[in-house]
Nucleic acid binder design. Structure first.
Lengths: 137, 137
DNA sequence: TGTAATCCCTACTAAATTGATAGGATTAAT
DNA sequence: ATTAATCCTATCAATTTAGTAGGGATTACA
């Protein structure tokens, strides 16, 4: 299941991308328009900023803005920041690899082989999708 | 993340498929070989039996066996039984569709569109994989 | 017929995760 | 100064996950 965090994060990014201007977008505006609990959203946008996807401006008339043009923001990056590893098991994760406790031999593991295929097919989707695609009407 | 339940279930099915004979396979044998807590595994195999994927025989020399040949057991079915919906959000699920509370218009939702692509690509993998493929050495 | 092996079923539990909420500190514009 | 914003930490309730416990029902076979 996709977490609410990811869902909200994607919606927020889309909203910011659609706004388009150079002025920062306030959390309150996003929260209201997308029906997201504001305090919860604050944390999500903070995460995206720390990951370098969003920039922020504090104080009055502050808010969040994209650090790159939407078509340069790849879903692989966004999803990894919001949802974590794309692989369904650590032993097939490219960025967060971890050996299974059980599996004596990874290459003989049926689950491993299956999950590599799932990972690759999901990666293909995320690599070919940018925020620009998402925010197109 | 793939749940342990699913992981164990897939390993157990693979084990049974590899055993191959007509004699039922005991939970204890699977648990030992695959390093799965036996009581936990019992419940998983029960689920698979209730879903019609496994058959069982009670009493001495009892155990579990496949209801179809491995190459007829599709991953779509297995995954749905063990892990639940293949879609990452209910609003793009083929078998467990549910409208989102928030989304006023599904077709305008950026998350929706993205998740349909992920679902389709994952489905393609599961539709083309059978237990027969998994259990090949 | 008795006994051991096996699946079957329900209930319980500890730990982790999720989806928030609360309260305030910090910063900047006016 | 005041106001409007982000930033940060802590807390919490509900849910899910992973596993345990205990026994019931069924069957093979000595």
């Amino acid at each position: 299941m996709l977490s609410k965090k990811t869902k909200y994060g994607l919606k927020a990014l889309t909203f910011i991308a659609r706004t388009g201007d150079d002025v920062p977008v306030q959390v309150s505006a996003i929260a209201k328009s997308e029906q997201i609990p504001q305090k919860f959203l604050e944390g999500i946008l903070l995460t995206l900023r720390k990951a370098g996807i969003l920039g922020s401006k504090k104080g009055k008339h502050g808010g969040y803005y994209l650090r790159s043009t939407p078509s340069d923001i790849k879903m692989t990056d966004v999803m990894r920041v919001l949802e974590g590893p794309i692989a369904m098991v650590p032993c097939v994760s490219l960025n967060y690899y971890e050996k299974c406790d059980d599996c004596p031999d990874e290459h003989a593991c049926s689950v491993h082989k299956l999950m590599i295929e799932v990972r690759d097919s999901t990666l293909k989707v995320f690599r070919n999708k940018t925020l620009g695609d998402l925010s197109q009407v």
